[in-house]
Each structure stands twice: as C-alpha cells, then as structure tokens.
Design a protein around this nucleic acid. Structure first.
Lengths: 135, 135
DNA sequence: TTGTACTGTAATAAATAGAATTACAGAATG
DNA sequence: CATTCTGTAATTCTATTTATTACAGTACAA
C-alpha cells in the first residue's frame, strides 16, 4: 500500500471521534493532516458512502461521525480504502506458456486472501474509539 | 504496497524451487514473469544479499536457491522486499499544533507494528516449498 | 586466446500513479 | 443576497515504478 488513504481516513475519523457530533470543515481537517482540502473532501465522500460519516453542505457545514466511534472497526476503514492488493501485483501478465507463469496469479490471489484475513482479524479487534482514546 | 517486488521475488523463487539446483538465467526468468531482465537481476541481487539465492556469473551462469525451499519462509521474502509501511503514510508532516496531528504518527507506527506482526505470523507459517508445490 | 553467453550495476528515459491545485456549481445560513 | 461551506471534475505537478540502454567483468568452450 503506497498511497496514504488509510492513514488519512483514520486521521479524519480520529478528529471526528474526539468531537462529539461537532461538525468539522474540510479546511480544518486538512490543516491537521497537512494535505489539500479537496483530498479530505474526497475521503469524506468515500467514508460517507461506507456509512461512517455524515456531512452537511453550506455555511457552517462539515462532517461528523455517522455512528459511535465504538461501532467503527479499523477493518471497516481498511475495507473502505482498500483498492490495490495487499502485497502487490505485477503489472504485466505472466507468460501463459510457463507452468508457473500460467498459474501464479491464481495462487497469489489465494495467498493474499489468506494473509489479508489475518490482517482483517487484527484490524477488526480495534475500534475507532480505542484508537482515538490514545490521544 | 504498490510495487510488485513481493510477487516478483516469489515468482523467481518459485521457479528456482521447481528446478533442483539447476541454474536459471535472468532472461529465462524474465520471460516467465514478463518483465525486464534487469529488474530480475536486481531482485536476485537483493535475494542473494538476504541469503536466499546463489548466483553464478559468466557463460552458463544463472541463479539457484541458496538453501532448501522448505527452509525459506514467505515472511523471509516479505522482509527482503519490504520498504514502505504496510498501510501507507502521509507524505507531509501533520500539524504539530494539533493534539491529534502531533501524535498520530507515533500511534500509527504502533498500530502498524501490531498489524504487521499478525501478517508476519501468517507468512511465517508458509514455506516456499508449500507454495511451489501448488503448481 | 578468443568469441559467446552470461551477471552485475549504473544511468537514463518512459510510463504510471499520487497529490495538489484550480475552478465552479450548488447548499445552507444569517 | 453575501458568505461560507460541500461536492466534484478537470488539470497540472510531482514522485514512484518500470523499462531500457550501456558496458565492464566473469566463466566457459571451441
């Protein structure tokens, strides 16, 4: 995972978790993370689609948690941002005339599912409340 | 993880595991993976530095496993190629004037160590022999 | 002893992906 | 109705990844 979507989303949610229902603006959040506000709004949009955030448009608008921080698992966040496979894939198709090349993607997929399961069990043990309470 | 070093290394090692000690050239390996041979030689160089591969220069040269496939764990491969953190980090430093921004990197690091531990336990349960025998 | 087939590595270029920026329509508020 | 926000698309900028080129050095075999 090379992009910063997981830590950015976790940062956003941590800020919201610490404000009990107070709306935070994308500009304020972006100032804490030190990234562009448009990126924040994109992540909020994504987290909203996954039911973790509610947001309000217009003056004095902003974002807030859609449900209690104790009901949001870090695995929920992982699912919301996960796009590329955990341990990477080669861009090119391997050689179909090679017995290994022909099958490796299937076996990699199986392996990744297995490994990702272990990761999700760990992330599923931790709630946003657990994380936010560390601060 | 956006780059393909883990699957490439695993592909290389799988090919070698299936040839009992026969030297394979970087061109042959690159043909199976369908990437540039120079990339293969770079990965071989890395895996050699980590004690998993031996290679021989000159005519009829190539690479072979440095130890039995049953003695190479997938976690060894992960360690050999791992460079960026598992779940990503923001490029910019968070705002030190924000109570969350000030501490988040430390808490992220702790979390990542924990999660990576779970991943490594899973990868440490699987040997290269296990993986190569699937083909 | 010399041509050939390799590795090893550096340097560069091309391709791709990530993040920042600009722009602007639309919503809510006072 | 001016202001302050969100939402989103389009574009530009930057960083990362991969491919390519180049070439020195090694080993073998005729």
């Amino acid at each position: 995972m090379n992009n910063a979507r997981f830590p950015i989303s976790l940062h956003i949610l941590t800020l919201l978790a610490r404000e009990g229902g107070i709306l935070l603006s994308s500009d304020y959040i972006a100032g804490s993370i030190n990234i562009n506000p448009v990126l924040v709004r994109k992540e909020i949009s994504n987290l909203r689609n996954h039911g973790m955030i509610e947001s309000k448009e217009g003056k004095n608008g902003g974002a807030t948690l859609a449900r209690p921080a104790a009901d949001i698992l870090l695995s929920d966040i992982y699912h919301a941002v996960q796009q590329t496979s955990l341990l990477g894939n080669s861009r090119n198709l391997p050689n179909p005339d090679c017995p290994v090349g022909k099958q490796i993607n299937q076996h990699l997929d199986d392996l990744y599912k297995d490994v990702e399961g272990a990761l999700l069990r760990k992330l599923g043990d931790i709630t946003l409340a657990d994380f936010a309470n560390k601060f």
